[in-house]
């Protein structure tokens, strides 16, 4: 049997609201992509019948809209949590305003992407590059909500979609809005491929339990990393 003993500390990284957000978001994105593809290119499996027998395409669109509302409010909630949550979920992680964050981005590219050096990255929550990518995905979320509700506003009297109606003239009409909405969806798919792969990668290489951390919230972090972090932030996280 192979085993190893190293000093590790359990760190509570992802609070319950963050984890809830993550899984709700995942389910919404899956639902939105599937229904979105169907709306974009509906399969012809009911052909030969009359229109009054069914409403399946209307239902698919309905699911898309419900998932979109859920996605939107979930996104708003996550934005709020960026101000209310713990240090790992704070908005300051996501926007690289500090020099140290840019340095870490370069380090992550060298260590994990190009793999030219083997130093350890000390981050406990997201590393700086991951944070930046999440920030870009947040911008894509925002654009997707803008374009989606912008199109939806034409068939709604509700104030919420109406708030996004201004995007339509900005993009010259519904044609441009629809096209952008469709292109951005591919951004979600490509993000998902890379995201899932990198979770596997980090769990495989670092064995900090990053996959299960999004279920339970706790990560295994090397003792020296935690101590250094405590020294930097001046707080004792031990409980």
């Amino acid at each position: 049997m192979r085993s190893r003993t190293i000093p590790m500390r359990e760190v509570y990284v992802w609070e319950l609201p963050v984890r809830m957000y993550h899984w709700v978001n995942m389910m919404c994105v899956i639902a939105l992509c599937i229904t979105g593809f169907i709306i974009g290119n509906p399969p012809a499996f009911m052909n030969g019948t009359e229109a009054y027998f069914n409403y399946w395409f209307g239902t698919v669109r309905f699911v898309h809209f419900i998932a979109a509302f859920l996605f939107f409010f979930n996104f708003i909630f996550r934005t709020y949590w960026g101000f209310a949550g713990n240090e790992f979920s704070r908005w300051t992680n996501f926007i690289p305003l500090k020099r140290s964050q840019w340095k870490e981005i370069v380090d992550v590219i060298k260590v994990d992407i190009l793999q030219v050096t083997h130093q350890k990255i000390d981050s406990i929550g997201h590393n700086a590059l991951a944070s930046l990518v999440y920030f870009i995905t947040f911008l894509i979320f925002l654009l997707q909500c803008l374009t989606g509700f912008g199109m939806y506003s034409a068939m709604s009297k509700s104030f919420l979609p109406k708030m996004f109606a201004w995007i339509v003239p900005v993009l010259g009409g519904d044609m441009g809005v629809r096209q952008l909405h469709h292109i951005l969806m591919w951004g979600f798919i490509i993000f998902a491929i890379v995201h899932v792969y990198l979770v596997f990668y980090h769990d495989y290489i670092e064995r900090r339990g990053v996959t299960s951390s999004m279920i339970g919230g706790w990560k295994f972090i090397e003792e020296d990393v935690v101590e250094r972090h405590e020294a930097e932030t001046g707080e004792n996280t031990k409980c």
């Binding site: 009911m46 052909n47 019948t49 027998f53 069914n54 395409f57 669109r61």
Partner: peptide
Amino acid sequence: RANFDAGLF
């Protein structure tokens, strides 16, 4: 439109 909602294309 009814054909659209019924998925008949």
